[in-house]
Computed example of a mutant assay.
Amino acid sequence: MLDRIKASLSSLAPAEQRVGKLVLADPRAFANLPVSELSDRAHVSKPTVVRFCRSMGYDGLSDFKLKLAGSVSEGVPFIHRSVDVDDKTSDVMVKVIDNTVAAFLKYRNEASTSALEKAAETLAATVENRRRVEFYGAGNSGIVALDAQHKFFRLGVNTIAYSDGHMQVMSASMLGAGDCVVVISNSGRTRDLMDACDIARKNGATTIVITASGSPLASAGHIHLAANHPEGYDKYSPMVSRLLHLLIIDILATSVALRIGGTHLQPKLQEMKNNLRSKRYT
């Protein structure tokens, strides 16, 4: 909850930002103080305090303070951050969307543009030299790898995605200098992905890893694209992490397309679109 507030601050009105900063400064005090005291400390009106709580996806100040107290005390099992068992569908909708938006805003504010630039340049060089680009992921991240393969395939890239550990190891063993592997992992601790990354690197391929900072995989690749979020990978099936990984893939695909575009890519994409028209009902 605190991570989400911090990530959302820049998108709030100045007065609501002051309320958010008051929450972050002392969450426990905020949960216990009356609205008059909160408005005085934040130098805002009482309605602004309530408006901030609703901007964060809660019914009002009482609901916000209740959830804040639970978040600060921790130890309560959860399915999705800030979602409770008694929430209505409308509450779940708002909170899931807010969690996702908060994660995206946090990434926008904290992402290393130099790392993204380096990754895009590496991928573009791999494509221009007609070498292989491969995407590895396991479980939920395997779906992201497939999406990445689909996006780069449409750019005319010689690419494939593997989610099976044995196939990853075998394919990594066949790579060499000039090839590139993008390894995607929420936890950064999956043994199969670590093995495949190590093999690809030893064989001379450039390795790009999309994973959480501080994980073993983060230091195993040549280029680390940090994907940090408040979800706990060991507590439930990730939701925000998957969308964050997809976002990073979109950034890379767009950046690579701009680098390799030239005069040949655009006609090919147009031809592809024309050929697909016959597959749709008019």
Rank of each mutant, 00 (worst) to 15 (best):
V96L: 08
N99F: 08
D91F: 02
T100P: 00
D84I: 00
K88G: 05
D84G: 03
A102I: 06
S112D: 12
R108H: 02
A125K: 09
R81F: 01
V169M: 14
S185D: 12
Y107K: 03
R131E: 07
S90Q: 08
A69T: 04
H150G: 00
Q168M: 15
I79P: 00
E128P: 00
G178C: 03
G70L: 06
K151G: 03
E74D: 13
G188H: 11
I160T: 12
V127Y: 05
H80T: 01
D98L: 07
H80N: 00
A111H: 05
V85N: 02
G178V: 01
G139L: 06
L123A: 02
F104K: 14
V96E: 12
T159A: 11
K118C: 05
E117D: 14
V92H: 00
L175Q: 11
S163G: 02
F78S: 03
L105G: 05
M174Y: 13
H166G: 04
T159W: 10
N140G: 08
G142I: 12
E117P: 01
T122P: 00
E121R: 03
R189M: 10
G178H: 07
R191N: 04
M167C: 06
V85I: 08
L123S: 02
I160G: 02
A124V: 06
D86K: 09
V183I: 12
G142N: 13
L146A: 15
G176P: 13
